[in-house]
Design a protein around this nucleic acid. Structure first.
Length: 272
DNA sequence: TTAGCCCTGAGA
DNA sequence: TCTCAGGGCTAA
């Protein structure tokens, strides 16, 4: 499931090849993934130049000429792929973009269809609701402010980390990995976590996201790079997906609990 | 604050 | 055939 590091990798790769290219067409195969009318989408896209490609939280933002912005949110199983052939045989392809001079097609593929694509006017006013609600990125949070904000909340720490309105970009994998590396139990209420631990947690989150980004993200299920290569950071997971296996730090079996509708992996000995 | 919904494929 | 995986949203 793409979180900040996976989305960041895609953005860097897309930016390298697509900035400056002109879109020639959009073919919507499944309008359900669009938050914009299909008619408007297919009419507006052709002729637009790609000016910049960035990221906000887990949203991919593609600024186009004509004051339009194209947004992708990959949900759980969304993939953006570039290929030279209009590979329509592949399942679950919902959108295909073509370019005037660039010889490849951009495919949006999404097995479970939790992802969304929309076209909005550029600028503050056009921001999709999901983007407007986002809290700061982990690196944008001042460490002290982060600790202070979390300590004022009664909710369980893991739920807060998953809440995009509090911190943007974390999902289940990196929330669990960060909590384990900080020695904090996922179901602990944020207001009960020591200030020093929250300060450390902030540093750990930044470090985990940075390392995961450098290793090309985590491929657990569906995430792949633009050219379909998998990420590598799953090799460094200490808890996520390791139920019943030994904690690398203390040897205790990794356990799971369910929080905020998500499975949380943790070490009952290292995380208090 | 939590349960349920959307959705499909893998595995029991 | 049933259960589980989960990001983001809504309703209770």
């Amino acid at each position: 499931m793409p979180e900040l590091p996976e989305v960041e990798n895609l953005v860097l790769e897309l930016r390298e090849v697509l900035v400056g290219e002109v879109l020639s067409g959009a073919r919507v195969r499944n309008p359900a993934i669009l938050q914009t009318s299909r008619l408007r989408f297919e009419k507006e896209i052709p002729g637009k130049k790609i000016l910049q490609i960035t990221r906000r939280g887990k949203f991919i933002r593609i600024d186009l000429s004509g004051e339009q912005t194209l947004w992708f949110h990959l949900g759980m199983t969304g993939q953006i792929l570039l290929s030279e052939t209009p590979d329509l045989a592949k399942d679950h392809i919902h959108l295909i973009l073509s370019f005037s001079n660039f010889q490849k097609f951009l495919f949006y593929r999404d097995v479970r269809r939790f992802g969304k694509v929309c076209l909005t006017p550029s600028g503050e006013k056009g921001l999709p609701a999901g983007v407007r609600r986002l809290g700061p990125e982990p690196r944008e949070w001042d460490q002290e402010d982060f600790a202070k904000a979390l300590r004022s909340r009664r909710a369980r720490i893991k739920s807060l980390l998953l809440n995009q309105g509090v911190v943007a970009g974390l999902g289940n994998i990196y929330a669990d990995e960060s909590l384990h590396r900080s020695g904090i139990h996922p179901s602990k209420r944020a207001c009960r976590v020591q200030r020093a631990d929250l300060l450390r947690l902030h540093g750990t989150i930044c470090q985990v996201l940075e390392r995961a980004t450098r290793w090309g993200g985590s491929t657990v299920d569906d995430y792949v790079h633009l050219d379909a290569r998998p990420g590598q950071f799953q090799m460094f997971h200490r808890v996520y997906g390791r139920r019943g296996e030994r904690c690398f730090t203390c040897g205790t079996a990794i356990r799971t609990i369910r929080l905020a509708g998500r499975t949380s992996f943790f070490c009952p000995h290292c995380q208090k």
